[in-house]
Simulated assay, not measured.
Amino acid sequence: MATLFTIPIPPLGAHPGGAVVCTEPAPQVVSYTLPPNPLLPPDNRLTTPTNAALVSALDVLEFGPHPPGVVLTTSAIQKFYSNGLDLENALADPAFLPTSLYHLFLRFLTFPMPTVAVLNGHAFAGGLMLAMHHDYRIMSPARGFLCVNELDFGVPLKAPMSSIFRLKCAPATYRSLVLEAQRFDGKAALEAGIVDGLGGVQEAVAMVGERKLTEKGRTGIYGAMKREMYRESVELLSEEGFAREEAAFLRGMEGEQGRRERGEGRVREILKGGKGAKL
């Protein structure tokens, strides 16, 4: 399969960079392949340069000489589609969430052509979030799990991250993902409605044909339709929405700390009045 173009990924710290490789597995179906992160283990974590390269790849398709079509994303490694954020990068850069990660999510969510995430391996946390901001998802039936595992390592989901699951998943599935950190294999993910089919790039191309997706971007309103459909996430992913929700998140955390301190004080008084009575 011939390469149409590549978008370089500049180095960042210990990350030496690489490229997003664009191919055309079928007419008007463009596939963007995420390179493996050279840091061990190779698991396609999302960094500022990687996010920017993916956005640039979308720009080339939207504003370049190519006709409207369909975008697929997949991974160059079999074990991982993406294992989420590069936490070192994310923590070191205060602008990472609003101007890099959320901008990437918003670009996919409102892209004026259909998008399909081809999940050839694990998609955890931010990796699954990226896939959820695509229009469709095809998952390997033989390998990989989908999981929102922030609960396991004590990082609360913020509103721009959680809203896409609320909009695209049934309530019981949303609960299993967020409050149980359940891992879904391909069969379970299909049954839960997280993915639209099982397979790889070939099956994704077949779905594109069956649903006539290459025709959907021709009228020029596909992105506008998605902006209306997912207006909650669109607002939360904007820089203005981020600033507002971040302030609300910090107020909520401060309120929770105060609530705990008051509760602990009440319990001390209860135990003191009951002379050490067991609760």
Results as ranks from 00 to 15, higher is better:
H103W: 10
T99P: 07
F108Q: 00
G64N: 05
L39D: 13
S82W: 06
G64W: 00
D43Y: 03
N83C: 09
R45Q: 08
H103T: 15
P65W: 10
H66P: 01
F80A: 10
L39M: 14
L87E: 14
T74W: 04
M113I: 09
L40H: 12
A53T: 02
F108R: 02
P114C: 09
L104N: 08
L104R: 08
L106Y: 08
L61Y: 05
D93E: 13
S56R: 15
T110G: 05
L40N: 05
V116M: 00
T50P: 04
R45Y: 07
L40Y: 14
F111D: 00
G64S: 04
D93G: 03
L58N: 01
V55Y: 04
P49S: 07
F111E: 02
T110C: 11
T115K: 02
V55A: 10
H103F: 05
N83Y: 01
P67T: 04
L109S: 00
T74R: 02
F80N: 07
P68R: 08
L109H: 03
D59V: 08
S56Q: 15
H66M: 06
D43R: 13
R45N: 13
A90T: 14
V116I: 15
L72C: 01
Y102M: 10
V116W: 00
T73W: 00
M113W: 06
A53Q: 10
P98Y: 02
P94E: 08
T74F: 01
N44R: 05
V116L: 00
L61E: 06
L104P: 07
F105V: 08
E88C: 05
N89C: 15
A52Y: 04
P49E: 08
P68Y: 02
T115S: 13
G64A: 07
T73H: 00
P36G: 09
T50Y: 06
T74V: 04
P36H: 09
P36K: 07
T74S: 11
T73L: 02
L109Y: 04
L87T: 10
A90P: 13
P38A: 14
A76H: 06
G64R: 00
T99R: 15
F80V: 03
P67D: 09
L87V: 13
L54V: 07
P49G: 10
L97F: 13
T99A: 13
T50I: 11
N89L: 09
V60H: 11
P98E: 01
P94M: 05
P114V: 04
E62M: 07
D43A: 14
L40W: 11
F96P: 10
D59G: 12
A95R: 13
L85E: 12
P114R: 03
S56Y: 07
Y81T: 04
G69N: 01
A57W: 01
L85C: 10
G84R: 01
L97Y: 15
A57M: 11
G64P: 03
G64F: 06
L54I: 09
L97V: 12
A92R: 12
H103P: 03
S82A: 06
L54Q: 07
T115E: 03
L39R: 13
P112K: 01
P94S: 02
D86V: 05
E88L: 13
P67K: 04
L39E: 15
E62D: 12
A76G: 15
P38R: 04
P38F: 04
N83P: 05
S82I: 08
D43I: 08
L91Y: 14
L91A: 11
P49Q: 07
